[in-house]
Amino acid sequence: MPVIRSARVPLDRASVIVPAGRVYVIPQRCKECRFCIDFCPKDVLVTSTETNAKGYRYPVVAPGKEEACVHCEFCSLVCPEYAIFTVEGPRAEVPA
């Protein structure tokens, strides 16, 4: 499904502080449903190349997306296995 991004830019964009998140994964719990990957609003995640003991590929942060997580916690909410969560990291100002 194509991802549609809003073309509009909020007026206060320059002053908004967006939280940064760090992604934590519990690989052995993952069953590779891909919910976290497909529903991440920032497309931060991809499947791992390695598998866990049960043969599932778990989520990892995509190359180039190391700073992209905004700690919205949706991956943690939607994960059926409680195998992923984010921790709020140091806040960074949104580049103009």
């Binding site: 760090r22 992604v23 934590y24 994964v25 519990i26 690989p27 791992s48 190349t49 390695e50 989520p59 990892v60 942060v61 995509a62 190359p63 997306k65 190391e66 943690s76 409680y82 195998a83 969560f85």
Partner: peptide, 13 residues
Amino acid sequence: MSTSTFIAERHPS
């Protein structure tokens, strides 16, 4: 594995 993925043993919940 991407270096920015942290491995955890437990979930906060």
